[in-house]
Amino acid sequence: MQSTVVRIEHLVKRFGDVQALDDCNAEVLQGEIFGFIGPDGAGKTTLFRILTTLLTPDEGRAEVLGLDVVDDYRRIRPQLGYMPGRFSLYHDLSVEENLTFFAGIFDADVQQNYELIRDLYEQLAPFKDRRAGKLSGGMKQKLALCCALIHKPQLLVLDEPTTGVDAVSRREFWDMLGRLREHGISIVVSTPYMDEARRCDRIALIQDGRILSTDSPQALSRSYRRPLLSVRVKQSFAALRALREFKHAHSVYSFGDALHYSDARTTLTGKDISELRDYLSGRSIEVEELHPIEPTIEDSFMELSTERNDG
């Protein structure tokens, strides 16, 4: 049995009239990468600030590493590594000085824990005398992760570490998280990028302060119940409009070079698919491909978030 490293129960937080968190429940297990996936304003940062003991909840409770975030905050802090969404290292200290400083405040030894940050720090080493404020975005992110790791925390809390980061650096960052998990560090991470969900062991989809669903990425994709087709055409925008007007359409969204069409009926026969193809041809839209597909996390997220808004 894996032990629980984070447990939140009926968590509520308001800022004036704004309900930032609305009855949130979740559990993160020892050694897993757990992702909170949702757009800006969903409540991810508020939740992370409660977990890192920087903010107290209005209602409900949260436990981190078996300790209460309100009563035991002093015992939680030394065991946490936190990377806030905004770059919060000292701009006017060098790379090396920042690392030594963070090791110092946690009473940690850089040499002793170097193994954990070796991969990252070797890329930073050529710039160790450069001021942190003068680093590129990708380098800042690597330094921030080093500083969050230098005291060998039990739990790493990363608030949107990949926002504004290019696709290549994002992949490398997730590779790095996978290696940290092998060191036994549990990781809680948030992201607005739906494609990063599949790099997590389990995810919670969050929007408007509410957790829509929690599961493994695979199970969440499978929870999507409607028939889903991928449609590839030359004139995507025209096809998007036409498909929305089709009498059985449930939703139509663009997905890269294809459209995802979901049908309001419970199942689709070959005849139904032919009918759809004919419908598009009738509107002078040349269909290149049209076939059933497995839903992605993004399909599930959009379905869950519209269900909630309609309900």
Partner: peptide, 24 residues
Amino acid sequence: DEPTGGVDPITRRQFWEMIYEQAE
């Protein structure tokens, strides 16, 4: 310049539809 960063997936798509309409 990165007009859709951090925006939810439905709003992101609605924004692209605005872009298409404007281009038309």
